[in-house]
Amino acid sequence: MSLVTSASAGSKPGILLARIGRSLKNALIKLSREPVGLFGFIVLLLLIIVAILAPLIAPYSPTTQNLPNALQAPSWEHWAGTDEYGRDILSRLIYGTRITIQTVLAVSVIVGPIGMLVGIVAGFVGGRTDAILMRFTDIVLSFPSLILALSFAAALGAGLETAIIAISLTGWPPIARLARAETLIVRNTDYVAAARLYGASPLRVLFLYIAPMCIPSVVVRLTLNMAGIILTAAALGFLGLGAQPPAPEWGAMISSGRQYMLDNWWVAVMPGIAILLTSLAFNLVGDALRDILDPRHARS
């Protein structure tokens, strides 16, 4: 396959860079017309910066206990207060972004390609292959994702990796369905007919003609999924089946703060805000991406 050689079309890296620059500029112009989406992008960008620079930004260690300082209300010293072991909640939240982003990226990297491959192959080959693949997809889709994740976590032992695997296992069917629907449309277009006329092999049609048309909607779907992933991961953490203490996972933080919640609201509310803000940002970005990548959904 010549996916790589497509870049050599311009033969000079300068042309390629200029093209990328132009596309980026266009995307930015479109984004600037969507203030809400722009807000989402900025929040996400901040989140990523915070995750990378966590040791530099966090004022305290996320794991060192300081029992005399336990359950302090938010103050200038501890902006988000301290938890039952006297750990600074803000610092724990800052380190928690690393876990969250790691989870989201890992799940997306697993779910995206698998879902797309299953969907495109089912749609393109059709017939019995399609029937088998889609019935299998339906079966997986009918599992409640949290329950499946629970049983997986129970079987493989609790931990972040199991949580990622469990979420991924139930995450790909929607992507597969989307990719299949898109493939069914693209398969019957004149440009695919033309490609068959000049002897393009099925693999070539699949990768160079159909896949590029599916990627935008899959990316949008994945981004919108990320909010759900964060919530599921937090729920698993809350149930004690995700990242294990003392790792500063947001869901686990709410869970451990639960018993002190009534008298010390900040223990549960602060991680809650972090979860809310992050999943909101992913949703906004997903919506904005849909408008940018997919002209069919363009607002008039």
């Binding site: 497509s6 440009y191 000049y198 393009a200």
Partner: peptide, 21 residues
């Protein structure tokens, strides 16, 4: 509007027949 791949540049559209063959 439907017979040319919307995400291919014209150079790719025209190079594809020879490349596919």
């Amino acid at each position: 509007y439907g017979s040319i791949h919307p995400r291919h540049r014209i150079e790719r559209v025209l190079a594809e027949p020879a490349r596919a063959m």
